[in-house]
Design a binder for these strands. Structure first.
Lengths: 141, 141
DNA sequence: CTCCTAAATAGTATCTATTATCAATTGCTA
DNA sequence: TAGCAATTGATAATAGATACTATTTAGGAG
């Protein structure tokens, strides 16, 4: 948590109460949160904080790599503290993002892409489906 | 092209002039088009067609698997005729989506995910960066 | 071929997620 | 602690997509 604040300073950004609170909320969650969810939690701590501020700071935090943004195919983007490079199994039922310990951008695929002359900037791998708990509930008839 | 129309009938949907034109436009393009681009081309052929119709039908076509939808991280979704399961190298410079002949959801990763008990519904793999032509132009100083 | 009905359409209003604007406030550096 | 750029809150504006509704139409039954 203090490390995260230092990270902000290190990039030349100010440490504001709003940013503290947003980081606090993120650090207390174990899953990806939508901006709405983050905003609600933030307002429970300090009601005056504007959604605009939440959006602004999530973008900023994502840009400097403190948080990672997850774009589900439908609905709003979701954010969580960046815990290193990772990919997820996203459950369509409960919204949980289960970390996948492996990265597809390794081994053969990486080689193929590099050999094609494409300069890789970033990559995105995401699996959607249903986690074990949600499987029975959401199975089609 | 006729095959695509049959596909529509086979699913119980009617063959309308609008759908013909949308499919024609898609079949004449070799890259992913945004709804706006598709709409423009469609209107060149038949000006009276509504954007709502374009949206509606692209959704429909995507649902029955005739077209595939590509969600770039920024900007609107893009569509093209479905040419089998595929992933892309998306160029941040020129926006072209270069097809990647390989799929990460094969071999070991697939095994790992299935063994975790997660029921896979779909997956998404996308690499962003710069294609060869754009590399010199966009390289940071 | 003509009639009928459900499906599809045009045009527009509406919605959702996000960004822009701008005056007022506030960290931080000197 | 003074000053100024960065940040904020409130809200308007935007982009992309969907919902709505009256009207039209595709395509099967007769």
């Amino acid at each position: 948590m203090t490390g995260l604040l230092n990270e902000l300073s290190a990039h030349g950004y100010k440490i504001t109460p709003q940013r503290r609170i947003i980081l606090q909320v993120l650090s207390e969650s174990c899953r990806h949160l939508s901006v709405e969810e983050i905003g609600d939690k933030v307002k429970q701590i300090e009601p005056g904080i504007s959604v605009a501020t939440v959006y602004r700071n999530l973008n900023l935090l994502a840009e400097i790599g403190i948080v990672s943004r997850l774009d589900l195919h439908e609905g709003p983007a979701r954010y969580e503290l960046n815990q290193g490079h990772d990919h997820h199994l996203v459950c369509l039922g409960c919204g949980h993002a289960i970390k996948l310990g492996v990265c597809p951008m390794q081994g053969e695929i990486k080689k193929i892409i590099e050999e094609s002359g494409f300069e890789v900037n970033s990559h995105h791998f995401e699996v959607t489906g249903y986690c074990q708990e949600c499987q029975t509930r959401h199975r089609k008839p």
